[in-house]
Write a protein that binds this DNA or RNA. Structure first.
Lengths: 340, 340
DNA sequence: CGACGTGACGTTACCGGGAACATAGCGCGC
DNA sequence: GCGCGCTATGTTCCCGGTAACGTCACGTCG
């Protein structure tokens, strides 16, 4: 903490002079060479620690002729939202002459730890950072980690600290709710994503605000975890829930789980309850019933994000931030309420 | 073609001496600086072309203090097969102290062009290459492009030119077909992926071989394009198809499209026809009916791939290749045939 | 007791580019 | 005819590491 660095980034030589050794000794310590006295090693490591020194991967790659980078080619397009956005970012970055390194959550762990992710990426040398599908807590952490590193976060609210780009989540929620209201629904429930996620929060707020504006009753939102499983759990608990005739689910996967749960409970969609999703995955048009949902143009989003970042890196000037409009796709899972 | 390079990689100086100018002039030409005489530019570019010169990104990054790389953090796990594999590769690479650059097909274009993908990746400096979800034609192209670059291809057949790792696709197909045979089915159709894809081909062969072994009739396979849409198209053409009581689809998405198409045609699953998929996406357990499928452990696959690559890069010795066993997951979409 | 091996460093050169400054030719105005 | 200012190009140094080799103190052995 409080690494009072007013100077340039430390390098081998600066470590060396502070430790009172030659830069080669520092290099050897860092590379675990033999024939270093324990006390020398300690001394060096102490300074390294103090200055929070990180190797320059470019210089290393140049000298060793090894980049420690692995190229990967994936020859099949993808579906899920944040991932399509990542693909679009990679594509646009490539076009702009940049390359991309990414850290993604694996299905095992419970999300990316932003501190480690940033450390990893900066260690490998990046000019800018792009954060997709962030949680509110991550944003707070990022604020202190990305000092001086141009950073774009995919989120809707403007932020003095970051560049931003997003699909307008609240508008999307509004479209979904309005569609249900147009069909005659008055009791519209919401299955939200984890509310620490900015997208989940924005959709929940959009739903809440639009109900309020229409003077409708606002039930508490059920909070899922984005997974189809959590949608299923919600749906099979139907009998214990306050009554509603329509559901706005915060993503298509939870909507799918809801369809499944309702079938297991003998509740028909859309005859008994209407369901709207969010994302428009390519499979959603084949769910049974086919899913009414809010389409996000992930490809446009990723492209926009890179445009903004590159402009910040090169043009220097126009630090724009923009929002992409979502689109309502009406299919079979919504209809007028039964008792109308 | 036939760039007879017997020497080291060309650099600015070697270009310069061949063109009879200083290395700075070459640098300026390459960076589009003004104040270069057209004939000088031409002369330089000709040599650049001849030697097939590529800039050293590490040296560039060192000199300019800019890596031209963008870090990306994606904070949400993904689903679709090749993509989960990519995630696993990134994860394992990170653990091993490597970083990953990837080129993925976007939903727009029709697949990655291997020649360009390799050019891009090598230009940005990679030590090794990993190819996920390859087509047969890509493999041929890669053979000539990856000379000297340790390359792992995710495919089942051993290959003297490459390292390999894979989930045993033929075994997966066998499990699916055997399951249907155990239920009493004798007419088992197959909806394949594009047969230029190695995975699609292996699954088709597994299906074909197992039917043959059992002495069953082998109908021609219907060739889809991996998308749910193509599964739908197949299913709605049911009346014009040769009769069958069960379908083995080469992935879950096509299986979903089939479920949808059958519903639109009034064909019940599994009462009239049984359907088996391949992949076990996290959503497949919520399809209606829930989908019997063959699970691939993409995470294990990606981890294995990196292990093998890193061993090749560092240990030098054990160039292993391994196959991971898939697993049959039985759900609602399969049952005994009607007329039994 | 001097030659020699070895451990623990230090010195120097080099990786392949780019920035900054130096220089040479050349047209031009006076 | 000469200084001036441009254009086109060359020189030098530096980026931040690592490899290769040099050095020095110390211990050992014949």
């Amino acid at each position: 903490m409080s690494a009072g660095n007013s100077e340039d980034k430390p390098n081998l030589r600066s470590i060396a002079s502070l430790a009172g050794v030659s830069h080669m000794t520092v290099s050897r310590v860092l590379n675990d060479h033999p024939n270093i006295r324990p006390e020398t090693r300690e001394k060096v490591l102490r300074v390294v620690e103090e200055l929070n020194y990180q190797r320059n991967s470019a210089a290393r790659a140049l000298a060793t002729r090894r980049s420690r980078r692995i190229g990967v080619i994936v020859d099949r397009p993808v579906e899920i939202g944040p991932d399509s956005t990542l693909r679009a970012v990679e594509h646009a970055a490539r076009e702009a002459g940049y390359s991309v390194s990414s850290v993604a959550a694996s299905p095992d762990d419970d999300g990316v730890r932003p501190r480690e992710a940033v450390a990893y990426l900066t260690a490998h040398g990046i000019d800018a950072l792009c954060v997709i599908a962030p949680r509110a807590s991550s944003v707070d952490v990022l604020r202190e980690l990305t000092d001086g590193l141009p950073t774009l976060i995919v989120k809707a609210d403007d932020d003095p600290n970051f560049l931003t780009a997003s699909v307008d989540q609240r508008l999307g929620a509004t479209l979904a709710v309005q569609h249900l209201m147009d069909l005659g629904h008055r009791e519209i429930a919401h299955v939200a994503g984890p509310l620490d996620w900015l997208d989940a929060r924005a959709r929940e707020r959009g739903w809440h605000a639009h109900l309020k504006k229409a003077g409708l009753h606002i039930p508490p939102a059920f909070v899922g975890d984005w997974s189809a499983d959590s949608g299923y759990e919600f749906a099979v608990a139907f009998d214990e829930l306050p009554p509603f005739t329509a559901i706005f689910a915060a993503n298509d996967q939870m909507a799918l789980g809801i369809l499944h749960g309702f079938r297991d409970r003998g509740i028909r969609v859309p005859e008994d309850v209407s369901v709207v999703g969010f994302d428009d995955l390519s499979v959603s048009r084949h769910f049974l019933p086919t899913l009414t949902t809010v389409r996000q143009d992930f490809h446009a989003l990723g492209t926009l994000a890179v445009e903004i970042l590159v402009a910040a890196l090169e043009g220097g000037g126009t630090e724009r931030r923009s929002r992409i409009a979502p689109e309502l796709i009406v299919r079979e899972s919504t209809a007028g309420p039964r008792t109308m």
